[in-house]
Simulated assay, not measured.
Amino acid sequence: MKICSIVLTAALLSAQSFASSVPSQPHLYVQGNAHMQVQPDRAVIRVAITEKSKSLSDAKKRVDDIMENAISIARNHKIKSDNIHAEQLNVYRQTRYNRTTNQDEFDGFRVSRSLTLKLEQIESYPVLLQKLVDAGINEFNNTQFEVSNKSALMKSLKKVAIKDAKLAAKELASDFDVKLDGLYSVSFSPMEIPRAPYARAASMKLMDSESGSVENAYNTGVLTLKAQVYAVYTINN
């Protein structure tokens, strides 16, 4: 797992009237930015079954049977009951315009149900998809790939961003032959300062990934997690 950290911006501002964000005395405005590329280890899969028939009971039975089979497949892939969410039945009465009679005519019932699955063993993702198709699932809305320990990773990223913001402030102070007096304010959201800050680039490798992979036909790629921190330092000569 690589963590690349880029300190994008720092600005040396003279005293201005931004009392809520910056002091009236000379100061540095620094942004630390860290990002990490990780291999996802779980997926949220959203699928559905849609059937159309002039017989509502026939369409409903077909949808219910396929949904029951899909849920059984999910359980066989060790998806917990709490991670299986089958929506209620949706029924739409459809009509079709007849140009000869200039009237809308009954065209059948459209019956559908949606299913959301949270798969925690991502290596079985390709096989699960194929089994759902074989079972009759005919709509794949989207799949959201996630990393299970995101909270811990984001905490590490924020620490890296803070470290890089501190390094940027020290470097910029050295370049302008001034001294850092102290930290005035810090935020994980941009401050309302109408100046384009100074950019500095850096990178570091902190750790290697031990995440697994999925079959080549369904390569999930990587996710990029990002963290930013904004800090204002007062300075003196």
Score class of each variant (00 low, 15 high):
residue 185 S to L: 11
residue 127 V to A: 14
residue 182 G to V: 05
residue 82 D to N: 14
residue 67 M to I: 15
residue 8 L to M: 02
residue 98 N to I: 01
residue 36 M to T: 01
residue 129 L to S: 05
residue 98 N to R: 02
residue 168 A to Y: 09
residue 53 S to I: 05
residue 44 V to C: 08
residue 136 G to F: 08
residue 114 S to Y: 01
residue 170 K to I: 13
residue 170 K to N: 15
residue 212 G to A: 13
residue 57 S to T: 14
residue 231 A to S: 12
residue 73 I to P: 03
residue 91 V to I: 15
residue 39 Q to G: 02
residue 232 V to C: 05
residue 212 G to Q: 11
residue 183 L to H: 02
residue 20 S to F: 06
residue 209 S to L: 06
residue 132 L to F: 05
residue 152 A to V: 15
residue 43 A to E: 04
residue 175 D to S: 15
residue 63 V to P: 07
residue 127 V to H: 08
residue 170 K to R: 13
residue 91 V to A: 02
residue 37 Q to I: 12
residue 209 S to A: 11
residue 44 V to Q: 10
residue 82 D to Q: 07
residue 13 L to K: 08
residue 220 T to H: 07
residue 49 I to P: 01
residue 105 E to D: 07
residue 80 K to P: 01
residue 65 D to H: 05
residue 118 K to M: 06
residue 162 I to G: 04
residue 198 Y to K: 07
residue 183 L to V: 10
residue 14 S to F: 05
residue 35 H to Y: 10
residue 128 L to G: 02
residue 93 R to T: 02
residue 222 V to W: 10
residue 77 H to Y: 14
residue 112 S to C: 06
residue 226 K to L: 07
residue 228 Q to W: 01
residue 66 I to K: 10
residue 52 K to Q: 01
residue 108 G to C: 04
residue 37 Q to G: 12
residue 61 K to R: 14
residue 135 A to I: 14
residue 170 K to W: 00
residue 101 T to Y: 09
residue 157 L to V: 07
residue 227 A to D: 08
residue 146 E to W: 01
residue 130 Q to M: 06
residue 74 A to Y: 06
residue 120 E to S: 13
residue 98 N to G: 02
residue 218 Y to C: 04
residue 215 E to S: 13
residue 192 E to I: 15
residue 62 R to A: 04
residue 148 S to F: 00
residue 167 L to P: 00
residue 148 S to I: 04
residue 56 L to R: 11
residue 118 K to T: 13
residue 2 K to G: 12
residue 41 D to Y: 12
residue 156 S to C: 04
residue 126 P to A: 12
residue 96 R to A: 00
residue 68 E to H: 10
residue 229 V to K: 05
residue 146 E to Y: 03
residue 53 S to V: 06
residue 130 Q to A: 06
residue 183 L to Q: 10
residue 93 R to W: 00
residue 129 L to R: 11
residue 214 V to W: 01
residue 71 I to Y: 05
residue 178 V to G: 03
residue 80 K to W: 05
residue 205 K to G: 14
residue 122 I to V: 08
residue 8 L to Q: 04
residue 216 N to I: 14
residue 174 S to K: 15
residue 95 T to N: 00
residue 77 H to F: 15
residue 111 V to C: 08
residue 69 N to Q: 14
residue 212 G to M: 11
residue 31 Q to A: 08
residue 115 L to D: 05
residue 171 E to R: 10
residue 157 L to E: 12
residue 99 R to C: 02
residue 218 Y to R: 09
residue 174 S to W: 03
residue 92 Y to H: 12
residue 209 S to K: 08
residue 230 Y to V: 15
residue 71 I to C: 06
residue 28 L to E: 09
residue 169 A to T: 01
residue 1 M to A: 13
residue 105 E to W: 00
residue 91 V to D: 06
residue 13 L to M: 10
residue 178 V to D: 03
residue 46 R to S: 12
residue 14 S to T: 15
